[in-house]
Design a protein around this nucleic acid. Structure first.
Length: 320
DNA sequence: CAGTTATAAAAGAGTG
DNA sequence: CACTCTTTTATAACTG
């Protein structure tokens, strides 16, 4: 590690430029012999953390003037399908977030929770095309909070401060993958933010072909499940249950086209959803599949319970 | 406590 | 040409 590198790191720390970005730039793009530590620092120091990740403002963002493709309607207005029955996970150290939109009035009865388990959205994956060739190395050099390991992968990783761990993967073709947001609208906001940031360097950057490709969510059934018995009752092509490998029953749903994970404690994971409707429709499907195999601990004490090998149910549940 | 197991999805370079 | 890798995310049992 040469002196120029250490100097650059020191000054970078003072300038609030991230160390790993500078390090990546030096390691993968620049040679100390060329005196490029200073060069890299100069390039990076043009951008402070706030320049790089300004708070999103739907009113001023991109103005919506130069490119008709930029529409803010989906940010300022609810999703066409709404987010009925879907809530965001509560932020740490705060009260649970209530659903944004109105839920239909639940039918009377004690099983309200069982009839309307609330799906929590955990991750959204989306893609878009800037329509312009991008040099990953240049992007890694120009912006802080980017990561580029050309020997490991071809894309530049651009991480965002808000929401936490929101990430964009940028390829030299100009195509971008957006990851890590917990709302469908948030993914598009990050995508647009990425496009705007790239436009600093590549003025021709557009925002084309945006689409959500995958949504991950989960919900809790109010009873434990006999996964072994459930698996035996399902078509072999659609159900996989091998506790030696993974402790959940994996179910391939066709409508909606998602993968469901049934955990013995009643947690159900949903992956592969394309929109909020897929998540909503997965709930009754999962309920119908699991209901006949819920554990009735107090009902039949004489019958031995089918206990999954890898996950013994230790504590009794208050369901009869 | 971190990593492994499994899952979807996109991108594209790299490997067999 | 078909995979693998990389990234994100929840879920939970198990290993080091």
């Amino acid at each position: 590690m040469d002196d120029g590198y250490l100097d650059a790191l020191t000054i970078a720390a003072e300038d609030r430029v991230s160390e790993f970005s500078l390090k990546a730039a030096l390691d993968h793009s620049l040679k100390p012999s060329q005196g490029t530590s200073t060069q890299a620092l100069q390039a990076l120091s043009h951008f402070s953390m706030d320049d790089f990740m300004p708070d999103f403002d739907a009113e001023t963002f991109d103005g919506g003037t130069s490119e008709p493709a930029f529409q803010f309607s989906d940010i300022s207005h609810p999703h066409p399908h709404g987010t009925v029955g879907i809530v965001q996970p509560p932020p740490p150290d705060s009260l649970p977030v209530q659903p944004v939109h109105h839920l239909p009035e639940p039918p009377p009865g004690p099983l309200t929770e069982a009839r309307h388990p609330q799906v929590v959205l955990h991750n959204v994956v989306a893609t878009f095309d800037t329509g312009t060739a991008v040099d990953p190395r240049t992007v890694a050099l120009r912006y802080c909070n980017t990561e580029f390991h050309p020997r490991r992968a071809a894309q530049v990783i651009m991480r965002f401060r808000e929401p936490a761990r929101a990430t964009c993967l940028i390829w030299k073709s100009g195509k971008v993958v957006v990851l890590g947001t917990r709302t469908i609208q948030g993914a598009k906001a990050i995508a647009r933010k990425c496009a705007r940031i790239l436009r600093h360097t590549y003025p021709a950057v557009q925002f084309k072909m945006y689409r959500v490709v995958n949504i991950v969510g989960s919900f809790k059934l109010p009873y434990p499940i006999q996964c072994e018995a459930m698996h035996e009752n399902l078509r072999e092509s659609h159900s996989k249950y091998d506790t030696e490998v993974f402790c959940a029953l994996r179910y391939k749903s066709e409508d909606p086209a998602v993968k469901l994970f049934f955990f013995p404690n009643g947690h159900v994971g949903i992956v592969g959803a394309k929109d909020a409707t897929d998540l909503e429709r997965a709930v009754p499907v999962a309920q119908a599949l699991a209901q006949p195999f819920r554990l009735h601990l107090a009902a039949q004490p004489d019958r031995p319970l089918l206990v999954p090998r890898a996950m013994p149910l230790i504590s009794p549940y208050p369901y009869h």
